Computed example of a mutant assay.
Amino acid sequence: MSSRIFQSIVLQMKDCSDRAVGVIDEQGTVVACNELSCIGEKWSNVAAMLAAEQDTLVVSNGFTFKTLPGWNGQFDYAVFVRGEDEQSALTCSMAVIALNGAKLYYEEKHDRATFVKNILCDNILLGDIYVRAKELHFVSEAPRAVILVRQLGVPDVSALDVISGLYPDRQSDFVLSISETDMAVVKQLGEGNDSRDVQKIAQEVQETLTRELGIKTVVGVGTIVNHVRDLARAYKEAQVAIEVGRVFDTERSIINYENLGIGRLIYQLPTTLCEMFLKEVFKQGS
């Protein structure tokens, strides 16, 4: 969460209140305040007190505090107002409403991409997926496809921006940087779309990168999933498509997991079993 969002709001509050109004983070550090000299101060004892007294007004050291609602009930930020009287309590409660609205808007706009990336990379528990999706107002049940784009040769950092330009709707479509060479496109599909439509999307991505940047890519396409929890599976399928295609289908640059055939089964065999088979077929000295 950017402190600049908080700072712009508390500075506006200076015009309608003579009280110092600001925000501290979970470490007790002042990240925003309409009295600029306070920014950067650390109030660790207050942070510990707020963690135990969430959702209620807390008075301490001449200030009134109230926490902002956080993800999964955790304390991330708290608003403070100088003073311990009723006016301070009222100002603090009103500031919480304003700052929490800005916080929610920021998270919905920017944190959805992080949420989707955490699902793809298995960095979030299954139970937390449902909680986080609800908090971000993220549509859980919708047909989506995961397309993995891997650059060949020297990677171009502009590739992410080029692909992002194809999908301006950042609330339902996501273009994510996975590594130096890999990018994932999570595309929400319309009703009735099938694998042929996903193939066209993959082809559009590849052709655009070739036309705009002149780079070569290999693209893996996972199966269409209907729930956000299954995005990780679709991403792994796209990875497998690229790996299997590199061995069994070197002529194609767009490989769909559904069309891998027997190559997919061979890829899933244990390495030791493959070595045993090769030793039996190609016996030493033959």
Rank of each mutant, 00 (worst) to 15 (best):
R132D: 06
H137N: 14
K117N: 15
E135Y: 13
L120K: 12
V116H: 05
A133Y: 00
A113V: 11
L126W: 06
L120S: 10
D111K: 14
F138Y: 12
G127M: 08
L136K: 06
V116D: 12
G127A: 10
L126Q: 08
I124S: 03
I124L: 10
R132W: 01
I124Y: 03
G127C: 12
Y130V: 04
L125I: 14
Y130D: 05
F138E: 13
Y130R: 03
G127E: 11
C121T: 13
L126K: 07
D128L: 12
V139R: 12
T114M: 07
A113T: 13
V116W: 04
L136T: 12
I124F: 06
H110T: 14
K117E: 15
I124C: 04
F138G: 01
F115R: 05
A113K: 15
D122Y: 10
C121Y: 07
I129H: 03
L136P: 12
C121H: 09
F115D: 09
H137W: 02
V139F: 04
F138N: 07
R132S: 02
G127R: 12
L125E: 10
L120W: 05
C121M: 11
G127Y: 08
I119M: 03
L136W: 11
T114Y: 11
D122N: 10
K117H: 10
H137A: 14
D128E: 12
A133E: 00
I129Q: 03
Y130T: 08
A113G: 08
K134L: 01
N123H: 14
N123S: 12
R112D: 00
L126F: 05
V131N: 02
K134C: 00
F138V: 06
D128I: 04
F138A: 06
R132A: 02
D111R: 15
L125K: 15
V139H: 07
L125W: 04
H110E: 11
T114A: 14
I119F: 02
G127P: 07
I124H: 09
R112F: 01
H110I: 09
I129R: 08
N118G: 05
L126A: 07
A133T: 00
L126Y: 02
L126P: 07
I129L: 07
V131M: 03
N118Y: 10
I119Q: 03
F138H: 14
D128W: 03
A113W: 11
I129P: 03
R112W: 01
T114I: 12
H110W: 07
N123W: 04
L125G: 13
D122W: 09
H137M: 08
F115Y: 11
F115V: 06
L120H: 06
V131D: 05
F138K: 08
L136Y: 09
I124K: 03
C121Q: 15
N123Q: 13
V131C: 00
A133L: 02
N123E: 15
L120G: 10
C121I: 15
V131Q: 07
V139W: 01
N123V: 03
R132H: 01
H137P: 03
R132P: 00
I119S: 05
D111I: 12
I119Y: 04
F115Q: 05
C121E: 14
I129K: 02
D122Q: 14
L125C: 08
H110Y: 13
K117M: 07
E135H: 13
N123P: 10
F115I: 08
G127N: 13
D122V: 11
L120R: 08
A133F: 02
V139L: 11
K134I: 00
L126M: 10
K117F: 06
L120M: 06
L120P: 06
K134G: 00
R112P: 05
